[in-house]
């Protein structure tokens, strides 16, 4: 009954893991207790994704998994075999910023910048979900991304601007 293509990974053993990372296949060898967040940061070198709490309480680690915004700190890496992961490093099209990135700069939607990767990926998904039609809707939809610098009004303005332009 056990699946043939995905054998069990014993404790402290590593297993190969391939996922589609920012549009490219990437293969790693990881232990079961590695989270997607730690895989990205410590093994894939994609440090743009941040660890703010590691417990699902801040949103700084938000990435897109198959296009859906997801907390990478609450996900085991091995669970995401074959998934398409988009991090902040994969958002811009070459040298050209994604519209949300550009709007964040223009509207000063960050200060220290530490929550910004998660805010931007979350915002991209919120717009794609069609839940950015009013400031109140944006505020609620973005409430899973804490910003201790308090850039919230500017974050709302940036997203509203992209939504309005789109």
């Amino acid at each position: 009954m056990r699946t043939t293509e995905r054998p069990a990974v014993p404790p402290r053993s590593s297993a190969p893991l391939t996922l589609r990372l920012n549009g490219r296949d990437a293969t790693f060898v990881v232990e079961p207790n590695v989270t997607l967040l730690d895989l990205l940061r410590e093994r894939a070198g994609l440090t743009g994704t941040k660890k703010g709490c590691d417990r699902g309480q801040c949103g700084a680690c938000t990435v897109l998994v198959n296009g859906r915004r997801t907390l990478s700190c609450l996900a085991l890496a091995l669970v995401h075999a074959g998934d398409e992961i988009t991090t902040i490093e994969g958002l811009a099209n070459g040298g050209e910023l994604h519209a949300v990135q550009a709007a964040f700069v223009e509207h000063d939607a960050f200060q220290c910048g530490f929550c910004t990767s998660g805010q931007i990926l979350s915002a991209v998904a919120v717009i794609a979900e069609g839940r950015a039609h009013s400031d109140a809707e944006i505020s609620e939809a973005m409430s899973g991304n804490l910003c201790r610098c308090g850039a919230y009004p500017n974050i709302v303005a940036a997203i509203a601007a992209v939504q309005g332009a789109g």
């Binding site: 070198g45 440090t47 743009g48 902040i88 990135q101 910004t116 990767s117």
Partner: peptide
């Protein structure tokens, strides 16, 4: 003026202490 460090911060290129290569 837009922050001159803005581009680094919205692309994930800004490296904080734990991001040091």
């Amino acid at each position: 003026l837009d922050r001159i460090d803005g581009h680094a911060k919205v692309t994930g290129a800004a490296r904080y202490a734990a991001d040091a290569p």
